[in-house]
């Protein structure tokens, strides 16, 4: 665990010079939330934007040929990968907490009322979206590098749109399971958490395999 934490801290030190621009990507979605008068829209944009900054660690590593530093450090490749995922998840959680704290304030000032359910559903969707983006992005970055790997960013976007389209076609009322999950905040949260954990477990495993087979 110590090595994983050290790897996450090393990743933080890579993006430290770019903290201002990362913070800017957290602030920008406030505008989207205000314009659309929707917490869900603001959170969705926030998680999408922060997911776009996850490539920073890979870009800095590539720019400075730091794969050689990672290659000489006494740390297992699997710990290095998990450390990076942890760091990126921390970035996502930070953006989510910031957005959940700021967006409702702005919306309330604009006269919108935000319920507890709005908070929960926005948080759940935010987490799911961020996970959906990053579980595809990170193995892509490990495999292809920060520039070519960016193409993986668009796969979840397309996937999300297809899912939305699919959901509108499915008569929720006829599916008891789907109806129960969607209308129960606890079940919705639980199922999202399980799904997110499963997605990350697969993604981490794939990334470790890629890094283990990678020659620098």
């Amino acid at each position: 665990m110590n090595d994983i934490w050290r790897a996450a801290k090393l990743d933080f030190s890579l993006v430290k010079p770019y903290v201002k621009s990362i913070c800017f990507t957290m602030v920008l979605p406030v505008v989207f939330a205000a314009v659309n008068r929707s917490l869900l829209t603001g959170i969705s944009f926030a998680m999408c934007f922060i997911a776009m900054t996850t490539g920073y660690t890979f870009s800095v590593t590539e720019k400075n040929s730091m794969e050689r530093l990672y290659g000489i450090l006494p740390i297992r490749k699997s710990d290095m990968v998990i450390g990076r995922y942890i760091f990126i998840m921390i970035m996502g959680i930070t953006a989510l907490i910031f957005s959940l704290a700021v967006h409702p304030v702005i919306l309330t000032i604009l006269g919108e009322s935000i319920s507890a359910f709005d908070h929960i559903s926005a948080a759940v969707i935010g987490i799911f979206l961020f996970a959906l983006y990053t579980v595809f992005q990170l193995p892509g970055y490990y495999k292809l590098g920060s520039i070519k790997g960016r193409v993986f960013m668009y796969i979840p976007v397309a996937g999300f749109l297809i899912t939305l389209l699919f959901l509108t076609k499915v008569p929720v009322g006829e599916s008891r399971l789907l109806f129960t999950v969607i209308h129960s905040p606890v079940l919705l949260m639980l199922s999202t958490v399980i799904l997110v954990i499963a997605m990350y477990a697969v993604s981490i495993r794939v990334s470790i395999q890629i890094l283990k087979n990678k020659e620098v």
């Binding site: 800095v60 400075n64 730091m66 000489i72």
Partner: peptide, 13 residues
């Protein structure tokens, strides 16, 4: 083990 390459491997920032 210590390693020195022909160019630096730290972040230039």
């Amino acid at each position: 083990l210590g390693v020195v390459f022909d160019s630096n491997y730290f972040s230039d920032e």
